[in-house]
Simulated scan of single mutants.
Amino acid sequence: MAEVIGVRFKNVGKVYYFDPVGLSFSVGQRVIVETARGVECGQVVLKNREVDDESLVSPLKPVMRLATEEDLAVVEQNHEKEKQAFAICQEKIEKHKLVMKLVDVEYTFDNNKILFYFTADGRVDFRELVKDLASVFRTRIELRQIGVRDESKMLGGLGVCGRPFCCSSYLGEFQPVSIKMAKEQGLSLNPTKISGTCGRLMCCLKYEQEAYEDLLKITPKVGAVVKTPDGKGTVTDANLLTGNLSVRMESDPDGALHSFHRSVVSVLKDGRIRVDRSEIAALSDLEDK
Score class of each variant (00 low, 15 high):
P164H: 09
G271T: 11
C198R: 02
V105F: 10
A281N: 14
V235Y: 00
L56P: 03
A282M: 13
K183D: 01
V12E: 12
G233D: 01
L66A: 13
R8I: 13
K47N: 12
Y16H: 13
R163S: 06
C204F: 04
L66I: 14
V51T: 04
I146T: 02
E94M: 08
M181R: 03
L205I: 04
L72W: 00
E128H: 10
G159S: 09
R272N: 13
F126M: 02
R65F: 05
I93D: 02
Q84V: 15
T139I: 03
K101D: 07
T108W: 07
C41T: 06
S263L: 01
S246D: 12
R274D: 10
G159P: 02
P176Y: 13
V265N: 03
T192F: 06
V160G: 00
A182Y: 02
L98F: 09
E106F: 10
A238S: 14
C89L: 10
D150Q: 15
P59Q: 14
D19N: 11
V57N: 14
V235D: 00
V57K: 15
K113Q: 12
V247F: 00
R37I: 04
F86I: 13
F118M: 13
S251Q: 09
L189Y: 03
L158W: 08
S58D: 11
L56S: 04
G162C: 10
G159D: 13
F118P: 03
F25T: 08
R200A: 04
L66T: 12
S263T: 05
S152Q: 15
A2C: 06
A36L: 15
L187Q: 04
P164I: 08
K183M: 04
R37E: 11
A2P: 01
P229S: 00
R8P: 05
E173H: 10
P176W: 12
S188T: 10
V45E: 07
A282T: 08
D270Q: 07
K269P: 01
Q43K: 15
S188P: 01
G199W: 08
K92E: 11
V264L: 02
F25Q: 07
K95V: 06
N244D: 08
K193N: 04
I179F: 02
F116G: 01
R65M: 08
V160K: 12
T219Y: 03
D214L: 14
L155E: 08
L245W: 00
K269F: 01
D110W: 12
A224D: 03
E3I: 14
L268N: 04
S55C: 09
T219W: 04
E128Q: 12
D121R: 09
K232I: 15
L66R: 14
L171K: 07
I93V: 15
P191T: 11
Q185M: 13
H258S: 06
S58M: 14
N78I: 09
F18S: 00
K206P: 01
V247N: 01
T234I: 14
A73F: 07
T35V: 10
C204P: 02
D104M: 03
V275S: 03
L46V: 06
R123I: 05
Y107K: 02
D53Q: 15
Y170T: 00
D270K: 07
S168H: 05
T219P: 03
Q175T: 14
L143Q: 03
V124I: 14
